[in-house]
């Protein structure tokens, strides 16, 4: 047997083993915390507070923590059901509004002659990067002004602690994001296709509807999902502007669980698992689109 050949083989094996060890490390690092969350969610409370070193898996797995969340007769259950409903309503409304208005604006900025286009695009980008905390105080004061104004004219209309308020405020950071990403997608389609459609007698809007939009379908999906995730995830504004079951969202519900019920990690885990299901499913099902959306515009050249 020739020695160099054997050495090369050993080296190849060493490399392969290192690679697989690294892959396993990545998988464990990624999955272990989530796995622990899932295990905790099906562990009864008395088993959860036992010595971890010897007791990891529940001896009597239970779905009680999940059942409580849907038990409308309990305070926690009622609040959870409202929270998940509110989150759904707020996230989908914001996504719909931002997708429609944002896509139109993005098309105009990508294709049409607009005076001061550069300034507009630049200010949109800056707005997208503005931290929410910078807007929280004026929002708070303005919302209380609006509510007080309506109260003075004898109307019961108010913004504080309503889903409408959250929907309006969430557009601040999601609309700029949608315009920015969709503009990137429109810029990637060649103009020739739309021009051909216009020569065939289409108006600009028809060209947008029948040519540009279908070509941008993956972009629309990606942008829609990312907007939904952003709205589903938002915490700071919900913390300030919602209190009651009428408007609280899931992030707020989960954040306050522990403060009212000491070490209620069984319930926190169950609620956490359920709050994670929609975004995780969306992310895994539409992974290709999302990666496209996240990298479009940030990796070019």
């Amino acid at each position: 047997m020739n020695v160099p050949g054997r050495r090369r083989k050993t080296l190849l094996w060493a490399r392969r083993i290192t690679l697989y060890a690294a892959v396993i490390a990545i998988v464990v690092w990624t999955l272990a915390p989530v796995a622990w969350l899932a295990i905790s969610s099906i562990t009864p409370y008395n088993e959860l507070i036992s010595d971890r070193a010897t007791h990891w898996f529940p001896r009597r797995p239970t779905f009680a923590n999940f059942k409580v969340m849907f038990d409308l007769s309990s305070e926690v259950g009622e609040r959870f059901v409202y929270a998940i409903r509110n989150s759904m309503i707020v996230a989908s409304s914001v996504t719909a509004i931002c997708l429609v208005t944002g896509t139109l604006a993005a098309y105009a900025l990508a294709r049409l002659p607009v005076k001061g286009k550069k300034t507009l695009v630049l200010s949109l980008m800056s707005i997208r990067m503005l931290p929410t905390i910078a807007l929280v105080i004026p929002f708070f004061v303005l919302v209380s002004y609006v509510d007080y104004g309506f109260m003075n004219i004898g109307s019961s209309f108010h913004l504080f602690d309503t889903k409408l308020c959250l929907i309006i405020l969430y557009t601040t950071f999601i609309l700029g994001f949608v315009i920015w990403i969709m503009r990137g997608f429109f810029l990637t389609i060649p103009t020739e296709l739309e021009e051909a459609a216009r020569i065939d007698g289409c108006t600009r809007l028809q060209a947008l509807r029948h040519v540009a939009l279908p070509l941008c379908a993956p972009g629309l999906v990606a942008t829609g999902i990312l907007s939904f995730l952003l709205a589903w995830d938002e915490f700071l504004l919900a913390l300030i502007f919602t209190r009651s079951n009428n408007a609280i969202t899931l992030p707020l519900f989960i954040a306050e669980l522990g403060s009212q019920y000491i070490t209620a990690y069984d319930q926190i885990s169950a609620a956490g698992v359920m709050a994670a299901v929609p975004p995780v499913l969306l992310a895994l099902l539409f992974q290709r689109f999302i990666v496209q959306g996240l990298t479009s515009g940030s990796v070019k050249g």
Partner: peptide, 23 residues
């Protein structure tokens, strides 16, 4: 592996915070 790597990113921030608090 490339698919599951997205999982932490998709987890809501609040869930992530409470999960690690418990860990």
């Amino acid at each position: 592996v490339r698919a599951i790597i997205l999982l932490p990113w998709a987890l809501p921030t609040v869930v992530n915070a409470r999960m690690w608090e418990w860990i």
